[in-house]
């Protein structure tokens, strides 16, 4: 028996080496796998929290209208009623957080109007467009159209 083993001893040593390697691997795995991995699926469950805790930049219309209810009322019947405030005024979560400390500048109207209403073959036919130079001859858009209520019948109602 002992004689038989003698000629395989080197193989036993090699097997031992593999065994140790395997053991180290298993132990390291146990230590290193994040604790919440696999709770919900094959991922770290806390990655959901990482994704949901990103800082907000756009406050959302509801937050704007909380204070600016007068503007909301004015826009309620205008052709622009479905456009969110921050589509033109820019991302203003910082202002919503701290209305007195952070105060946004009033944006220049014309470039904003042109961004949407400049004629372009690719735009759908139902959408009202103009060739700005021909239409206003360099005049600013808000000389005639009030952005919050752009129709002519409403001109002047934008206090």
């Amino acid at each position: 028996m002992r004689e038989l083993f003698k000629d395989k001893e080197h193989l036993v040593r090699m097997a031992g080496l593999f065994g140790v390697g395997l053991l180290v691997f298993v132990v390291l795995r146990g230590v290193l796998i994040p604790a919440d991995f696999g709770d919900l699926g094959h991922y770290r469950a806390s990655a959901l929290d990482d994704n949901s805790s990103v800082e907000l930049r756009f406050a959302g219309r509801a937050a704007c209208e909380l204070c600016h209810d007068d503007v909301a009322a004015e826009r309620a019947k205008s052709a622009h009623r479905s456009i969110a405030c921050e589509a033109c005024h820019g991302a203003l979560a910082v202002h919503a957080d701290n209305p007195e400390a952070v105060f946004p500048e009033r944006p220049e109207a014309t470039p904003l109007c042109v961004a949407c209403h400049e004629a372009n073959v690719t735009k759908p036919a139902w959408f009202p467009t103009v060739i700005p130079d021909e239409h206003s001859e360099g005049e600013a858009c808000d000389e005639c159209h009030m952005p919050h209520a752009p129709g002519f019948e409403e001109v002047g109602s934008d206090g």
């Binding site: 003698k6 395989k8 001893e9 080197h10 193989l11 080496l17």
Partner: peptide, 14 residues
């Protein structure tokens, strides 16, 4: 050699 010195014909055959 993993400390082994055995190269008997039998071990080599294995």
């Amino acid at each position: 050699a993993l400390g082994s010195d055995n190269i008997s014909p039998r071990s080599l055959e294995i």
